[in-house]
């Protein structure tokens, strides 16, 4: 069997004391199209405890549907759990005036560490003009921007490349690692210092972790699992059993995300 102290500890205790996980892609609350049995704040915190996740950064499902109440809901949760729960302010480009209002509230919402875009969900391309004010806002403040990315229209390599090149002072985290456009995503992360690959769903594409390692971008790969959608143990298992080094496991589960989030914590 695989020889890894990290694997042994996760199998034995469900967590790893020397490698507490940071989850940069989480959500909150129920959502369309899926039954989630474990989505209350208390249940989600219990999952973090069970799986050895130190902190998660969330965008609310409510916020993906309606920014105004949804971002406020996440703000309140970050205040209730300041050491475990950080937030992204969701920007829906279909409502530019409301988006401007949400950006105006950003500085006051101390639990927020960046912005969240969902171009395909909002049916609006990542490089479209309505995202520009939010991207300029994030670039000025050197924020993290987590964007849903996937092959196909709205958020593929083509759109991501334009945005990453145009705004080099923000850190662009590619949610799902441009699922299906693996080579393009890896090349982008290799070439541009501000591009990071996030693993939600991608971890289940068998071989992708090793491919990222072979592409020399493991230090640009971060953990996520869409909690409360997915059991962090499923995602962690995909990563720790991959044929990569122990130090790469630590980078993906914790170290790179810690480096990204620490300067952005304002609580």
């Amino acid at each position: 069997m695989i020889q890894s102290a990290i694997v042994d500890e996760f199998l034995t205790t469900g967590q790893c004391a020397s490698c507490r996980v940071i989850d940069l892609h989480a959500h909150y609350g129920p959502y369309q199209g899926i039954y989630m049995p474990n989505h209350t704040p208390e249940q989600m915190i219990a999952t973090l405890d069970r799986c050895g996740v130190e902190r998660m950064v969330t965008s609310g499902h409510m916020a993906l549907a309606d920014m105004v109440p949804g971002n406020q809901e996440i703000t309140e949760l970050t205040e209730r759990y300041p050491t475990r729960w950080s937030g992204y302010t969701v920007i829906n480009p279909n409502y530019p005036e409301l988006a401007a209002r949400e950006l105006a509230l950003y500085d006051k919402r101390k639990g927020m560490v960046g912005l969240k875009f969902h171009p395909s969900g909002h049916r609006y391309p990542l490089d479209g003009p309505n995202y520009a004010p939010a991207l300029e806002f994030a670039a000025e403040r050197r924020l993290m921007v987590l964007s849903h990315t996937w092959e196909g229209p709205f958020n593929s390599v083509a759109e991501v490349t334009k945005v990453a090149e145009a705004y080099p002072t923000l850190d662009l985290i590619l949610g799902h690692s441009i699922y299906g456009e693996w080579d393009g995503a890896i090349a982008l992360a290799k070439r541009l210092p501000n591009v990071y690959l996030e693993l939600t769903a991608a971890y289940a594409a068998n071989g992708i972790i090793e491919k990222m390692s072979a592409g020399g971008v493991t230090d640009k790969v971060v953990f996520g699992c869409d909690l409360p959608w997915f059991d962090p143990h499923y995602a962690i298992g995909c990563i720790i059993f991959a044929r990569i080094s122990e130090s790469e496991r630590r980078m993906i589960l914790r170290e790179t995300a810690l480096r990204l989030i620490t300067p952005r914590l304002r609580h």
């Binding site: 971890y203 289940a204 995909c238 990563i239 059993f241």
Partner: peptide, 8 residues
């Protein structure tokens, strides 16, 4: 991968 369901 087998690792995900294994740990879960």
């Amino acid at each position: 991968p087998m690792g995900g369901p294994r740990l879960m």
